[in-house]
């Protein structure tokens, strides 16, 4: 393992799903890399492919996948080339996941202890039931659950949504993964609980040595928590770079528009919207993916697809007119 190499390198990841109207290009060639100990925020509208990207990292994909190409290098090993059983070995050991909806993420017929113990036993086969319980208790306390010993013997329906999400996060941390995937972990929660969970992630990064991929459609939240930002649109990455840099100087009109949607403007306090619709997933992409909605679209944008280009150190954007319109 070379510490200078990025932990995760995704190269030209393409994924097509089978539909009635022909193949849908869910991921249209994703290039992304990040190092150890980073929190990478992935933002984009629904359908931009951010959840699918995470599913690819776990290789837990629906059955209607027609084509999956490219490379996902994890410490130099291509996850897409692993046999199914080798891949399964990575899950719950090197990679852990927090799902979007905590209300359905836990099996209603089993206690919290059973959930955590089985996951721990899979990760550390030598562990005794007693030690598993002790570690679970310590972890529940750490993720901010009071009365941990009572909660450990509770069933999911006896706990609130926020508490269930803390338990799912505790589960993820118990397996001590190198990579933690969080797929919109706060979207299904109340605003106040959402803030608590974000705070929790912020605290946890102190002693968590792995990297986190944090999916959200909320730019402000990502700004608060993440080191790197990756903006997805229509199955492509349109802009990526260090959070502070990207948010201070967005170089793609879509990122700019997203920012405008988050910030109230001076006239009457109404939120801005982006007119138009995301192009269909079956579209062959013979132009810039954002051309149909871009305020700065020109002829050059319609001549072939746009690729990510470095605009500053570690900062890339996929816009041919970036220098003209967003200097």
């Amino acid at each position: 393992m070379n510490p200078d190499l990025p932990m995760i390198t995704i190269r030209n990841l393409k994924l097509d799903a089978r539909t009635e109207h022909g193949p849908a290009h869910i991921l249209r060639g994703i290039d992304l890399e990040f190092g150890r100990g980073r929190i990478v925020g992935v933002v984009g509208e629904s359908g931009s492919g951010k959840s699918t990207l995470v599913s690819c990292l776990l290789r837990l994909l629906p059955s209607n996948i027609e084509r999956l190409e490219g490379e996902i290098l994890f410490d130099g090993i291509d996850l897409l080339k692993l046999s199914p059983s080798d891949m399964n070995d990575w899950r719950g050991r090197k990679i852990a996941m927090v799902f979007q909806d905590p209300m359905t993420a836990l099996n209603p017929l089993f206690t919290i202890n059973t959930h955590l113990r089985d996951v721990l036993k899979r990760r550390f086969p030598q562990i005794s039931a007693r030690e598993a319980r002790e570690r679970s208790l310590a972890m529940l306390t750490k993720v901010g659950i009071s009365d941990a010993s009572v909660r450990l013997d509770a069933y999911p329906h006896q706990l609130s949504g926020g508490m269930r999400q803390r338990i799912v996060i505790a589960m993820a941390l118990l397996v001590e993964p190198d990579l933690l995937l969080a797929d919109e972990p706060t979207t299904a929660l109340d605003a106040t609980v959402e803030a608590q969970i974000v705070d929790l992630f912020d605290q946890l990064r102190q002693d968590f040595s792995g990297s986190i991929v944090f999916i959200s459609h909320h730019l402000g939240l990502v700004a608060e928590l993440c080191d790197d930002l990756c903006v997805m649109y229509g199955g492509t990455i349109v802009e990526t770079g260090p959070v502070a840099e990207v948010l201070a100087r967005p170089r793609h009109p879509y990122t700019r528009a997203l920012l405008d949607c988050e910030i109230e403007d001076d006239h009457g306090g109404r939120l801005a919207t982006i007119p138009g619709e995301v192009p269909s997933a079956t579209w062959a992409m013979d132009a810039c993916i954002f051309a149909s909605r871009c305020a700065h679209v020109a002829d050059i944008c319609r001549r072939g697809p746009t690729v990510l280009e470095t605009v500053a150190i570690g900062h890339k954007a996929a816009c041919k007119r970036s220098r003209e319109v967003l200097p």
């Binding site: 852990a96 993420a105 099996n107």
Partner: peptide, 14 residues
């Protein structure tokens, strides 16, 4: 097809 089964798979349970 339930989410909690997906979660078990994501943790590599047999």
């Amino acid at each position: 097809g339930e989410n909690f089964i997906r979660l078990s798979r994501a943790y590599g349970l047999s």
